[in-house]
Design a binder for these strands. Structure first.
Lengths: 128, 128
DNA sequence: TATAAACCTTGTAGCCACTACAGGGTCAAG
DNA sequence: CTTGACCCTGTAGTGGCTACAAGGTTTATA
């Protein structure tokens, strides 16, 4: 399976796959005689894991640790749990920030009287 | 007022102020005999506007347009309103995404049985 | 007056997670 | 045997800063 096929399989751009290889997140696959990357099922599942974790907003570094942990089957999963919880806390912080932001923007826009720029409440609210 | 004083006044790093100048968002101030930037009240208010808009999540490019519009006092403020609404729509999209994300992470973490990595539900949920 | 500390200057490189080329090589279909 | 769709590497760009390095200026103190 070459990079384009893998890309279609996991719905990821070929450039992104090569990027993951470059930063050491996805192991280098063997090459064909024509120097094409030749991926196996293990690559597919590792890349799927990465993409799923990225979709959930985990950082590359977090994913790196998660993949390492996944290989230590005997260990407790406390570290995995901790990473997930840290990420959840981060998401909650962002949600709170965005919620406050939406309220401010709502009020800003609600004040617009559709007049001239000179009497614009939105610009007024942004000005000092 | 030099760059450090301006930085303290508007609670922004000096590097950021110079960055705004470099990208043409904040006009170049005159210089003192020792080649120090010499800011006036106009700079303070322009930078305050920029920072307030950044805090509300407007992009640099949106702020550039807002500042341009603010100078055309006779024009209708429809364009200002449109930018604010577009940004609000963006914030709402992000809120929806983050809310879905939080739900997924909540459920992921809720499934953790605190056992070994081999039976970790979080890693299972991430795997394909 | 000397000097040290605290500023200022410019330019450049780094952050994150990609994305987009350019300039070449390979491969399958017709 | 040519065409076009892929692949390769390497580099540069994105946004919005942030962090140096290596020098110049100003201010406070000895």
């Amino acid at each position: 399976m070459n990079v384009g096929e893998l890309a279609r399989t996991v719905d990821t751009k070929a450039e992104t796959i090569r990027y993951y290889e470059r930063i050491g997140l996805l192991p280098e696959p063997p090459r064909t005689s024509g120097n094409y990357r030749d991926y196996s099922a293990r690559h597919v599942s590792r890349l799927s894991f990465i993409r799923r974790a990225r979709d959930l907003g985990f950082s590359i570094e977090q994913i790196r640790v998660l993949l390492d942990l996944a290989d230590q089957k005997e260990q407790s999963c406390a570290a995995v749990d901790a990473i997930a919880r840290a990420h959840l806390a981060d998401v909650k912080r962002k949600l709170a920030d965005l919620t406050a932001l939406r309220r401010e923007l709502d009020s800003l826009i609600g004040q617009c009287r559709h007049g001239t720029v000179a009497e614009c409440r939105i610009l007024e609210a942004l000005a000092p």
